[in-house]
Design a protein around this nucleic acid. Structure first.
Lengths: 124, 124
DNA sequence: CGGTATCCATTCTGATACTG
DNA sequence: CAGTATCAGAATGGATACCG
């Protein structure tokens, strides 16, 4: 009983937390979900994920690549061409991430409503 | 085809992103998963989630309460007693979150290995 | 016990300019 | 096209002290 809690919170949880922190940044999840369909080129991602700066896209892709979730392939053409796609690990991650995305889409209204209620009460 | 992408990335995604960012902070997810079992008191959570400061716990709980994911009940006893529990919305969220947690637990080793490989190559 | 207030270090994010 | 470099501002995290 307590052992379960201990296991979860003193051994697993710092690690799990680390993974979730990475996904919690502003763009990682969006890119993982986008790349589910097919490989994308750098500027193609930039155009699709509106609002992301070139720098943030570079940084996010580097992190995902470092984590082994995304693979980067360069084609020595002119102009240079770079393609990003999900690795197997990335694909397996995209499943639970998509589920979470679905939840968010479904329940966003309730969250907004709750926030409004909360803020209204706090104001007084 | 393109419509699907557009829908996802120009309407849904900023909103979904907002929800996921909230969960991406260092403690929210851990507390949501903890509270799945039962209600917890303030210092009980603090003891269980080792490493969290009193302030961060307060802040995180306020945010979760504001989002309608956690409810706060005070008992006017002496000493004062405050109990936190998941709302229905919080419970429904905990499902996909737990799935993601399972994924993280399973694949953390692969991520660590990928990082080591990546860093080793970058060093040279 | 369960907070709030203050303050500081670190990290994250993004705009701008430049490069092979 | 696909980046890197630099720099500033915002957000986040946490330590400490104090309060009802």
């Amino acid at each position: 009983m307590t052992a379960k809690i201990d296991d979860l919170f003193h051994e697993e949880c710092p690690k799990v937390s680390r993974v979730l922190s990475r996904l919690g940044d502003k763009w990682s999840v969006l890119i993982v979900v986008l790349l589910r369909d097919r490989a994308y080129r750098f500027n193609e991602i930039k155009r699709t994920v509106s609002g992301i700066s070139q720098q943030m896209l570079t940084r996010t892709l580097r992190n995902l690549e470092r984590d082994g979730l995304v693979s980067r392939k360069t084609y020595p053409t002119s102009p240079p061409q770079v393609e990003y796609s999900l690795t197997d690990l990335g694909h397996s991650l995209s499943e639970p991430v998509l589920a979470l995305g679905e939840w968010a889409k479904t329940h966003l209204g309730e969250i907004d409503a709750a926030q409004t209620r909360f803020d209204r009460r706090a104001e007084k």
